[in-house]
Amino acid sequence: MNKKILGVFLLAVITVSSAWAQGRKGLRINEVLVTNEENFQDDYGCQSAWIEIFNTTFGSVDVRSCYLTNDKNNPRKYPIPKGDVLTEIPPRQHLLFWADDMPNRGTFHVNFKLDPEKDNWIGLYDANGRDLIDSVTVPAGIPADHSYARVEDGVGQWVIKGDKGSGYVTPSTNNVTLDKNEKIEMFETHDPFGVGMSVLAMLIVFTGLLLLYLLFRGIGQISVLVKKRNAMRVHGISDKDEAREKGLGRESGEIYAAIAMALYQHLEVHDVEDTILTINKVKKAYSPWNSKIYSLREVPNKK
């Protein structure tokens, strides 16, 4: 018994821990700006390099206890502090860290700087300091106030942003701004009368229920076969044709209902009752909320 409980407990722990890990695995380094001259300012009015983390999942993910680093040999360089509610990233949202080597300025100021003269490797490690969640190497020589960013949030290629045509630098906001629902617009353009959608959707509905039909037709046939075999054994019949003629295995529910009713009549309903009459006082649970219950009438029940 104890082993069983222990097994269930271990399974639960594994499930929960894997779910936890799965959430953090959805974090991505999304955009990095190394030389900040006239770009985003922190709460102190300073312009420093910044690193944006994006939560690609559809659930909130807390980055506390994870590590940010620019040193492959020191994965635990900046532990993201516990106890700050702002470390929780809402679904599909961002968090910005300032690479200003001023950790005493708060949770989001890391203890390293980025060097514009050389390639900067940045890594985000899980709370164990071993599992690398995401990393990026920001190439040297990116112009001031230009960022190195993913084309789309959390996925895709990296590009340099900041020039006309290459897209805007977008600290703490989406790299791609969605100002329309593309799916809806596609349907409006390509299927203005809804015929395509209707045909496609009905096809899927029919396919689903057709598959269910085929499957349960097969299961039903197997069930009838098993019942028939059992019935043949009980009736001592070995000839399949005879069994088919007698409809063995295909009895309707009505037959079983009739048998059940006959048994009930035989076993439960008596022509002569035992004539014991017991009168019990109606007991109703007392509570201060219904103390007047004896003087109230029953809830009306319209027949």
């Binding site: 203005p192 009368f193 809804g194 015929v195 959608m197 209707s198 959707a201 009905m202 509905v205 029919f206 689903g208 229920l209 057709l210 269910l212 039909y213 349960f216 037709r217 039903g220 529910g253």
Partner: peptide
């Protein structure tokens, strides 16, 4: 439904109402 699974297709057919109204609403 399990005893007569072909009736599932009738349940599917009745969903035409959804898409008829969808087209008119568009």
């Amino acid at each position: 439904l399990i005893a007569n699974p072909k009736l599932m297709l009738v349940g599917a057919a009745a969903q035409f109402g959804i898409f008829g109204a969808y087209m008119v609403a568009l």
